[in-house]
Amino acid sequence: MDTEMLRRLKPAAGEMRWLEIPWRTDLWAGCREAEAAGRPVFLWAMNGNPLGCV
């Protein structure tokens, strides 16, 4: 297969920084975790999953 094309199409390290944030994927569970941790919640909500196609 064309490994150079595969490399070109996949994101470079600098394009993956938004995925280094420890995103949770469930608002309900996230609020319970925040309550236990004594932290506020930050919600990134988009039409389309922000961690998928948006």
Partner: peptide
């Protein structure tokens, strides 16, 4: 926004960050 180091550090240290499909 979310590739910015300061944003990423704040979210990881001070919040519980959640990403979901609002549709």
């Amino acid at each position: 926004a979310f590739s910015d180091p300061e944003v990423a550090a704040l979210l990881a240290a001070e919040f519980v960050p959640v990403a979901e499909n609002c549709s």
